[in-house]
Amino acid sequence: MILDLHTHSIKSDDGRAKVENYCKWIRKKEIPLDGFVLTEHRQYDSESDYRALEDEYNLLILKASEVETDYGHVLVFGVNEDLLHSFDFANIRLPIQTVLNAAKENGAFAAPCHPGRKRVGLFSHYELSGPISDVHTVEVFNGGSIPGEDELSVKQAAIHGYKGFGGSDSHVVSRIGYCATTFESDSITTVEGLVGELQSGSFGPISLRPEPKNTTTEP
């Protein structure tokens, strides 16, 4: 199954997409996603319940978080009450080791996103401060990357032996599914199931970006 592991809704301060509109867009544009994960910035949205939308659109909608650390941004899947009390999700200067350790101890899965990005990507910090031993998986395809960033992510992930996944990092409806992750399993139905599949390593990144429109005309 194919999941977009990195999306933002209006619950994020810079998100402009309503979750239902993501669902409508996926179905209208026939984007081959089986679901998506809402990774709101610096928070975990424990209130929203998307089960009705899941049923209506036959999509899996899971919730996670994107937190900010001294080594860049990190996606955390499998957020639970214990993890929420482990560190302040709103703090933009979290030590990455704190996040990795807390995720591991609480049955969650933490992975740096857009690692090839300047300032907020893992590998830009590796140049300055050296690698982190507990990182094992990174987002190598990110729908918000500018040219060169994903290429750097793929190259550095290979150098460090990291597993890669993909996510659109969509903040507007039309960007969902630009990048995603394909899983060998077709039976993920819960965030716990997602964490299990991420831990198993049975997945890979895919790019579903639309082909750029050719604006040139034949002479």
Partner: peptide, 13 residues
């Protein structure tokens, strides 16, 4: 009042 990090560095909102 909050802050966030991005390509441009740290910004306060």
């Amino acid at each position: 009042i909050f802050d966030k990090t991005g390509r441009s560095g740290t910004m306060v909102f």
